[in-house]
């Protein structure tokens, strides 16, 4: 997956904005003839980077940092990108944060509606994932997508669930999934530690693994932050942690030309 949300759903074009500065240096001067018509196919403006998620022995764990970027500017550094849905599901979002907030509103309305039926049913992770895939696919089919890559994690009736949905309506599930840069950097680490070992991986080991992945992502993903949150879903329900700081070590950079402060 392309790690620049700006490029999602678009043909690749290095000639245009080769330094990925958008939207900072873009100032459209040309008058849009059709400005009063229906506006479709926006672009992501304020974006969140990777979300990573794994299955473990007793449930599912998701992690996402607290940054919302405006192009290359670290604009909002206290944004929560993990959102509980009902009592057994959590949603993690990368991509456009305003679209994500719209989705939160839709899902909150949905859970309220489901609650008011008082029929003894509520939505589990599989249902939320299916619902989101329909919303995302319907919007892409209107050529007016919600510019996100989403992870849905949950635990219900003794079964784990971890699924992915994106702006095209593409879906899948797997024991470990990551969006954005995480698909390149975190997935190799996660697959080695998780796939085939979901039934034995402890919660502590899962937490340590995600912490390590968030650290590696912070070192290499320029749109990431050293502060993240963890969502854990088990039989006990959804727990979203406080903000967790990532401790980093940069002394190695001193001796490397182009890394640390240069004397010459």
């Amino acid at each position: 997956m392309d790690h620049f949300p700006t490029n999602w759903g678009r043909p690749r074009n290095d000639a245009f904005d080769p330094y990925a500065t958008y939207p900072l240096h873009q100032r459209a001067t040309a008058k849009d003839t059709f400005a009063e018509g229906v506006q479709h196919t926006q672009q992501p403006i304020v974006t969140g980077t990777s979300v990573i998620g794994i299955m473990f022995k007793d449930g599912v764990m998701l992690a996402a940092d607290n940054l919302a970027s405006y192009g290359s500017l670290a604009r909002f550094k206290d944004i929560q990108r993990l959102h509980p849905v009902g009592s057994s599901t959590v949603l993690g979002a990368s991509g456009d944060m305003s679209d994500f907030q719209a989705l939160q509103a839709i899902l909150d309305d949905l859970t309220t509606d489901e609650f008011t039926y008082q029929d003894g049913h509520d939505l589990g992770p599989a249902e939320v994932h299916e619902y989101l895939s329909r919303v995302m696919y319907a919007r892409r089919s209107k050529m007016d997508p919600l510019w996100n890559s989403l992870l849905v994690g949950g635990f219900r009736d003794g079964k784990r669930f971890l699924g992915y949905v994106d702006l095209l309506g593409t879906t899948y599930s797997a024991p470990s999934i990551a969006t954005g840069y995480g698909a390149y950097i975190a997935i190799p680490l996660l697959r080695a530690a998780v796939d085939g070992k979901e039934d034995t991986l402890t919660e502590d080991a899962a937490r340590a693994l995600l912490h390590e992945c968030m650290r590696v992502l912070f070192y290499r993903d320029a749109r990431s932050l050293d502060k993240y949150q963890l969502a854990t879903v088990t039989a006990d329900g959804v727990r979203i942690s406080d903000q967790i700081p990532i401790e980093t070590e940069w002394r190695f950079a001193e001796g490397i030309r182009g890394y640390g402060a240069q004397t010459q």
Partner: peptide, 13 residues
């Protein structure tokens, strides 16, 4: 940062 041509990139569904 200048605009030699107006740019339009469309969504690929």
């Amino acid at each position: 940062g200048s605009f030699a041509h107006s740019q339009q990139r469309s969504f690929n569904p």
